[in-house]
Computed example of a mutant assay.
Amino acid sequence: MTESSSPSPFPPPPGARAYHLRTGRGRFAVVDAPVPDGVEPRGVALLMPGFTGSKEDFHRLHGPLAARGYRVVAVDGRGQNESDGPADDESPYAREELARDALAQAAALDTPLHLVGHSLGGQIARAAVLLDPSPFVSFTLMASGPAEISESQKQRVKLLHDALAVMTMPQVWEAILAMGPPEEVGGPASGSLAPELLRRRWLNHKPAQLLATGRQLLAEPNRVAELAAVALPFHVLSGALDDTWPVPLLDAMAVELGARRTIIAGAEHSPNQEQPLATARALADFFDLHPGDRNRP
Score class of each variant (00 low, 15 high):
Asn204Arg: 15
Gly121Glu: 14
Gly53Gln: 10
Pro233Arg: 06
Val185Lys: 00
Ala143Trp: 04
Phe287Met: 10
Ala67Leu: 08
Ser152Cys: 09
Gly63Trp: 06
Thr168Ile: 12
Asn204Tyr: 15
Leu257Ile: 15
Ser8Asp: 09
Glu226Arg: 11
Ala219Gln: 11
Gly69Asn: 00
Glu151Arg: 06
Phe28Ala: 00
Gln171Val: 06
Thr52Ile: 05
Asp37Arg: 11
Val172Lys: 01
Lys158Thr: 07
Val157His: 00
Phe58Cys: 06
Ala282His: 02
Gly50Ile: 02
Leu130Pro: 03
Pro271Arg: 01
Leu277Ile: 15
Met1Lys: 13
Ala108Thr: 10
Glu148Gly: 12
Ser150Thr: 01
Ser152Glu: 12
Pro12Thr: 02
Ala178Thr: 07
Asp84Ile: 09
Pro195Leu: 06
Leu177Lys: 14
Tyr93Asp: 02
His114Glu: 01
Ala45Ser: 10
Ala94Asp: 08
Tyr19Arg: 01
Leu177Ala: 08
Val72Trp: 00
Phe139Asp: 04
Arg199Tyr: 08
Arg71Val: 01
Pro276Ser: 06
Gln273Ser: 01
Val72Phe: 00
Asp162Leu: 12
Ser270Gln: 05
Ala284Asp: 04
Pro64Asn: 11
Val172Trp: 01
Pro13Arg: 02
Ser192His: 14
Phe58Lys: 07
Phe287Trp: 03
Leu217Trp: 05
Glu56Lys: 02
Val224Gly: 05
Leu113Arg: 05
Ala94Ser: 10
Glu148Thr: 08
Gly15Val: 02
Leu232Gln: 09
Ser8Asn: 00
Ala194Gln: 14
Glu174Tyr: 09
Ala278Asn: 12
His205Trp: 14
Val230Arg: 00
Leu65Thr: 05
Asp37Cys: 11
Val73Ile: 14
Ala212His: 02
Glu148Phe: 11
Ala107Tyr: 12
Pro64Phe: 10
Pro246Phe: 00
Gly24Met: 05
Arg294Pro: 04
Tyr93Ala: 00
Ala212Met: 04
Leu159Met: 10
Val185Trp: 03
Arg100Lys: 07
Ser150Val: 03
Ala18Thr: 03
Gly69Thr: 06
Ser152Leu: 07
Ala66Glu: 00
Val255Thr: 13
Glu151Thr: 06
Ala282Gly: 04
Arg95Tyr: 12
His118Trp: 15
Glu183Asp: 15
Gly79Ser: 11
Ser134Val: 11
Met142Asp: 13
Gly292His: 00
His205Glu: 11
Gly26Pro: 04
Asp243Asn: 13
His114Val: 04
Ala219Thr: 13
Arg281Gln: 15
Ala175Met: 14
Gly77Ala: 02
Thr244Cys: 06
Gln123Ala: 13
Pro182Tyr: 07
Val172Gln: 03
Ala107Lys: 02
Leu47Val: 07
Val75Cys: 05
Leu227Pro: 10
Arg223Leu: 15
Pro276Cys: 11
